Computed example of a mutant assay.
Amino acid sequence: MIAIIDYGMGNLRSVYKGFEKVGVKAAVVSDPSQVDQADGVVLPGVGAFADAMANLRAAGMVEVILQAIKEGKPFLGICLGQQLLFDASEEWGYTQGLGIFPGQVRRLPEGLKVPHMGWNQIEIARPDPLLDGIPDRSSFYFVHSYAVEPVDAEITLTLTEYGVHFASIVGKNKVYGIQFHPEKSSALGLKILENFGRVVKTC
């Protein structure tokens, strides 16, 4: 079973329904013990980085997330959930993140319309099971004003251009972060959720 973490910051129902559509068993959970028992973990997120980190701490989720990743459980962060995987964000000051991946979360460059909202393409930088069946230059649905800057370029699986090229999917050791919303990205977005379910099943 995949645990979708409810910490008051995510569009949980659409993520759950996305997994349901592709036949992947998932449940929305708010109890840390349920995350501990899950085979895979999903961290969705919409809103401010600092609020998200505060909510995760208040819910007792930070420790179980770190433990799940340490144990090698497949993990998927979506939108804000991707950003939380990094060291820190400059949104509204400086806020420490989960520190799974070295790097910062920075505002998209001045002069660009923000949020970056709507359909945009991904450029595949390196193959990964998460991208099985996803053609290069496929389009997905984005809504964000900040983007991750990984220290290690090797974790960047796809890039997207919006004034600059930013890492739209990152991943290493079955820990993934996706800046766009796969659950809102039609058939190819659902394919990514299905692929993550397959990664969980093979562990």
Rank of each mutant, 00 (worst) to 15 (best):
R107K: 15
V62Q: 01
D51Y: 02
N173P: 07
V151Y: 05
E90Q: 08
Y94V: 12
K174I: 04
G118C: 04
I169E: 00
R57E: 15
R107A: 13
V28C: 06
F140M: 01
N55S: 13
L84A: 01
V105T: 00
D51P: 02
V148A: 06
M53C: 05
Q82E: 13
W92E: 12
L56C: 05
F49C: 13
G72H: 10
Q121Y: 06
I192S: 01
L98C: 01
G45K: 04
E110M: 05
A147F: 15
F196G: 09
G23T: 09
V29F: 03
I65E: 05
R106S: 08
G163K: 09
Y162P: 07
F49S: 13
G97M: 09
A153P: 06
Q82S: 03
G23F: 02
Y7P: 12
F101V: 03
Q82G: 04
R107P: 10
V164Y: 08
S138G: 14
C203S: 14
E91W: 04
M53W: 03
W92L: 15
Q121H: 13
I5S: 03
F75C: 10
G60A: 13
I2L: 11
T160G: 00
D31H: 03
K73M: 12
Q104F: 08
F75T: 06
E161C: 02
D51F: 00
P32I: 02
M117I: 15
Y162C: 14
